[in-house]
């Protein structure tokens, strides 16, 4: 599904060379739910941007869905992002001037879907996140959790091969965080691969697989027993998130 081989990313200024990623290797299989953790400055965000084709890298190869996406043109990578990847951002990144339906439509329009098809998908996606009745609302009229669900709907509407989630619950309180997390798990169960970047080890533990990045390299990974992990960790996650929110 996703395969990164010896990927390096170097930021150069006149004075210093910073290695954001060094010989980074990662394989993600179809249908996995992978959590990526690591301390601040470890290269999490760089990994996320590279995985999402939001920025390029210096060395290495990156295969997505069997295609080498290492050196795609700007237009081609835009198309890959549009068709294969669904993004969920920490800050939701909903467009404030557009209502929910219009927000969800944004990637569909870039894909060139017909109005009818767009309508079908928007409705379906909103239904999926449980906000079917609020199509005409503006983002500011919703709570944070609802906004994130809209963002998830936007990511789902294009029926992507995998979802890239960047601290999806970072701006949410515990109750909402749990709802969003459950939603992601449901999505994963219906077959969508998910890669979630988070700084929260408790949250990460709910994923099937954990990857820790330290100094731009994969440090270790742990495989959890999917079902057992999920049921066992509910309460502890809540506690942790609640603590984090203070």
């Amino acid at each position: 599904m996703l395969s990164m081989k010896n990927i390096s990313k170097v930021f150069k200024t006149d004075l210093v060379e910073t290695h954001a990623l060094r010989d980074f290797n990662l394989e993600v299989n179809e249908g996995e739910f992978v959590a990526v953790t690591g301390p601040s400055g470890s290269g999490k965000t760089t990994f996320l941007n590279i995985a999402g084709l939001l920025e390029g890298f210096t060395h290495g190869d990156y295969f997505l869905d069997g295609i080498n996406v290492s050196n795609l043109s700007d237009n081609k990578s835009a198309a890959v992002r549009n068709e294969k990847i669904g993004f969920i951002f920490q800050g939701f990144n909903l467009i404030p001037d557009l209502n929910l339906a219009e927000n969800i439509e944004v990637p569909l329009r870039y894909r060139g879907f017909s109005a009818k098809e767009r309508k079908r998908r928007v409705e379906q996606a909103l239904e999926q996140v449980g906000l079917g009745a609020r199509m005409k609302h503006l983002p500011t009229q919703l709570s944070g959790g609802q906004q994130q669900r809209v963002a998830i709907a936007r990511a789902l509407a294009g029926e992507p091969r995998f979802l890239l989630a960047d601290e999806p619950t970072g701006n949410l309180d515990s109750l909402m965080a749990r709802q969003v997390m459950e939603l992601l798990e449901n999505i994963n169960q219906s077959g969508t691969t998910i890669i979630m970047v988070t700084h929260d080890p408790e949250l990460a533990r709910r994923a099937q697989r954990n990857i820790q990045i330290v100094d731009g390299q994969v440090c270790d990974f742990t495989m959890y027993q999917p079902n057992a992990a999920r049921s066992a960790s509910h309460s502890s996650v809540d506690k942790l998130v609640a603590n984090a929110q203070g």
Binding site: L54, A78, A79, R81, F87, G91, N93, I95, P107, Y110
Partner: peptide, 15 residues
């Protein structure tokens, strides 16, 4: 931010 988001969601430069 919005423009960045649009780009992430698949907007090409000409879009």
């Amino acid at each position: 931010k919005q423009i960045g988001t649009r780009r992430a969601l698949g907007a090409k430069k000409r879009d």
